[in-house]
């Protein structure tokens, strides 16, 4: 991946059957980076996971009346920083209001955003007039 400067702009149907496809793109990016000093297999897993969790999140929040919607995912790498943006057009939610999992309570749900926060350097979510954006950044060094 020459110069580690590249952008992917992907649209997929908001169906969970496409999770593995999106995750695989993250894995392939980790293996193709020109310069990366860390463990590539670990990075591949982590990118697979954050893309999977973010896409599930977008599917959950997609507009209910239009099942044929698309999820848009933009992955850009500039120098040694990766930015992943995942767009949905649903109700949206404020990730700052999502508490970390209570490790003493055994809940079936509620670990997705925690995993994203654990594996990325920064995570934010905002609403524009048309859509919501989950933005995740990570230094690739």
């Amino acid at each position: 991946m020459a110069g580690n400067s590249i952008e992917f702009d992907i649209k997929v149907p908001n169906k969970t059957r496409y999770l593995s496809l999106i995750g695989k793109i993250g894995e392939d990016i980790a293996r193709e980076l020109d310069r990366y000093g860390g463990d590539r297999d670990t990075l591949a897993y982590h990118l697979n996971l954050v893309l999977t969790e973010a896409m599930v999140n977008a599917i959950k929040h997609a507009g209910p009346n239009e099942p044929e919607k698309l999820v848009r995912i933009v992955i850009s790498i500039i120098s040694d920083e990766m930015t992943i943006r995942v767009y949905d057009d649903g109700q949206g939610f404020d990730i700052n209001e999502i508490p970390p999992p209570n490790f003493d309570e055994l809940e079936d749900r509620g670990r997705g955003i925690f995993l994203i926060r654990s594996l990325m350097d920064s995570v934010c979510y905002w609403k524009s007039h048309r859509e919501n954006v989950l933005e995740m950044k990570k230094k690739l060094i």
Binding site: Y45, T52, V56, L106, E107, R109, R111, G112, L115
Partner: peptide, 16 residues
């Protein structure tokens, strides 16, 4: 080879 939060959640559900 790969598990996400939903996969973990399914196992937690089984444990409960």
């Amino acid at each position: 080879r790969f598990i996400d939060s939903s996969g973990l959640g399914a196992l937690v559900s089984g444990f409960k």
